[in-house]
Simulated scan of single mutants.
Amino acid sequence: MIELYTWGTPNGRKISIMLEALRLPYRVHPVNILEEEQFEPKFLALSPNNKIPAITDDEGPDGEPISLFESGAILIYLAEKCGEFIPNDPKERLECLQWLMWQMGGFGPFLGQAHHFNRFVKDPVPYAQERYYDEAQRLWGVLDRQLADKKFVIGSDLTIADFAIYPWSMRYEWQHIDPDKYPHVKAWMERMGHIEFVQRGMQVP
């Protein structure tokens, strides 16, 4: 059984989408980051960076229990454990991993900053809002060009890159982004949104 420690954020939903896609049994343990539960010792033992998500798996490598934090690492682990949603071909695998890292390093952290300055600061910071809005537009443009001739992020098949990027795209209003300006991303979002396991994963917790 996999234990999922998560909250209703894009990073958390990457993993619930993946678990639903893999049809793996799992239990959800909500970690209320608004109440700072991520700083409790029990959770810090699993995620020393005090960030969700984290998992434990009592059937890890060699049949031994394992705990993991960092959403990208968890996605790779689950994909390799089940042999799904990560290409076997070496070149396609690298293509998948580079877009996963693109999300981890850009289409996540920078959009998260846009969320913060657009929604959560008490006093507006125009410079920060403009900086992260500009970067959000740039990142959406990168993704739009990538999807111009593809059904999914790296081609015709779903991968963990799609699972990582999609929950962040669905917070477009927080980023002050108009998806109509990025038609290839919008079409991909609609395709993703019609997949039943994606719908289920987006509702966790």
Rank of each mutant, 00 (worst) to 15 (best):
S67P: 02
G155V: 07
R145H: 10
F39K: 13
W174M: 09
V121Q: 09
I86K: 02
Q199L: 03
K151H: 04
G106A: 12
D58M: 12
Q146S: 01
T9D: 12
I195C: 05
L158K: 12
S67I: 04
D62P: 03
D157C: 10
R27Y: 03
F39P: 09
D157W: 07
Y127M: 13
Q137E: 02
I154F: 00
G155W: 04
H194W: 00
M202Q: 15
Y26P: 03
K14W: 00
R171T: 04
D123P: 00
W188G: 01
G63I: 08
Y5C: 05
M192T: 04
Q98L: 11
T159D: 03
M104T: 14
G105I: 01
T9L: 15
G155S: 02
W99M: 11
V125R: 06
N11E: 09
H116D: 13
R13Q: 15
P179Q: 05
R191D: 04
N88I: 10
L68S: 08
A54W: 13
R171H: 09
S71E: 06
F85W: 12
P167R: 06
R93S: 09
G108D: 00
I160E: 05
T56R: 11
Q203R: 15
T159G: 06
L68T: 09
G60T: 05
F107R: 02
P90T: 07
C82F: 00
S156K: 14
I160F: 01
D162F: 07
H176S: 13
D149C: 08
T6K: 10
